Amino acid sequence: MSTPTADLAAAGVSIWLDDLSRTRINSGNIAELIATRNVTGVTTNPTIFANAITNANDTSYDAQVTELAASGATAEEAVFAATTQDVAAALDVFRPVWEASNHVDGRVSIEVSPDLAHDTEGTVASAKQLWAKIDRPNLLVKIPATKAGLPAIAEAIGAGISVNVTLIFSLERYEEVIDAYLTGLETAKAAGIDLSGIHSVASFFVSRVDTETDKRLTAIGTDAANALKSKAGLANARLAYELFEKKFADARAQELLAAGANLQRPLWASTGVKDPELPDTLYVTELVAAGVVNTMPEKTLEATFDHGVVTGDTITGGYAEAHEVFAGLAEVGIDFADVTQVLEDEGVAKFIDSWHDLLATVEEGLKAQR
């Protein structure tokens, strides 16, 4: 049966759900989305886990919290136990997808503690701990693309850990992320690690770019500025794909690919449309190209399945127009380097806040059982 999500898959786009909970797993919802919506992976973050574990209508964590309280676990230990259990279970559900896709898809991500966003050594240690605990070949460990995260990404890849690099907003940082991936592969190769078993995606955020840029364009208020609204997010993502094509075509990357390495696929994150004036599938149907991943909140997934119009590749023919958008932004006075730095700082801060809210809620739950 041809559906918009099936059409996306046929165009080479991997569809991942940006949500996870124990109830989704235990109820069979994840398996149903695989079968009916062409979903081939899941991404998580501290906010998603906070929403799942603190949901008053979800009792699926109660027994484990009681058991952890009896064992004297701290809030950090309890969160680690609950989230790694969920991700391991989801990875098992996706195992057939992983096998059928030649180990490309069927992926589930789990993030290192957001408190480590500016701590390289702590990030590496956390990545290794998560990789060892969950012990599934289709896992991706999420590491933020902060300055401290870049060497951690290289070290984790070099140790044979598959990584989802998150919170990428600028082309400059994205190029550094690709370089970190290649450095890690070179380290792994020198250590005799099989490169074919190492996978990575680079999560490039989309809608948040429009939200921040459009706020600044509104403040400028000229006709030229207003004409550029809701264009920066797509232009930025399209130029990221152009950079992806360029970097993985050069000699350094080609040598690693010839040795068995995998492409680090671009992943479109933050694809839920926040402006009600825009089409609700904008950041899906306008970012179609072979080899990309689009991770969607369920609302966007269902909108795409219901009425998304997939017309094939909507990225590679738009490079010239995307460059024109950025020239126009510069002309009206948008400092895009500042836009992306603000977004990175806010992204890290939001995940830290969600993480601390989660720890506080779990601490309350543990105390109530003691």
Rank of each mutant, 00 (worst) to 15 (best):
A89Q: 10
W131V: 11
S14Y: 07
N55C: 06
S354R: 06
N29R: 13
I168K: 08
D86Q: 11
A253P: 15
S71H: 06
A261Q: 05
R173Q: 06
A253L: 14
L301A: 05
W98M: 09
F326M: 03
T285E: 06
H323P: 14
V288I: 10
A232W: 03
F351H: 02
D353K: 15
L182C: 12
L256N: 04
P137R: 07
A322D: 00
T311Y: 05
D306K: 13
A225M: 00
G72Y: 12
K133D: 01
V292P: 01
H356A: 06
P96R: 15
T285I: 12
V108G: 00
A132L: 13
L366F: 09
I334E: 02
I15V: 12
D345N: 09
G233H: 05
P266I: 14
I168V: 12
L91E: 00
L301Y: 08
V293N: 04
P4G: 00
L171P: 13
T5M: 04
I53E: 03
E324Q: 15
N51P: 01
P46N: 02
I153A: 02
L282I: 12
L343A: 04
V293Y: 10
T311D: 04
A232L: 02
I143H: 03
V284N: 00
V325Y: 00
T183L: 12
D280V: 06
L366N: 11
F326K: 01
V325D: 00
Y181A: 05
M296L: 14
D214T: 10
T3R: 09
D313R: 07
P144N: 02
G233S: 13
D338R: 05
V209I: 15
F94C: 07
A251T: 15
R95H: 14
E67P: 12
A237G: 08
T211V: 15
D306A: 14
Q369R: 14
R107F: 04
D18L: 06
S60P: 08
L195S: 02
G192T: 08
T304P: 07
A261P: 03
S126Q: 10
F305S: 14
Q85L: 13
F49A: 08
D92P: 10
A330Y: 03
A9D: 04
L256M: 11
G184Q: 05
T3I: 10
Y241P: 13
G365M: 15
K189P: 01
T211N: 10
G333C: 07
K128C: 11
A88G: 13
A180Y: 09
T23E: 15
L267G: 01
A75V: 14
V273S: 03
T40Y: 05
V108F: 02
A227P: 06
V112W: 10
L359Q: 06
F351W: 11
Q341F: 05
L130Q: 01
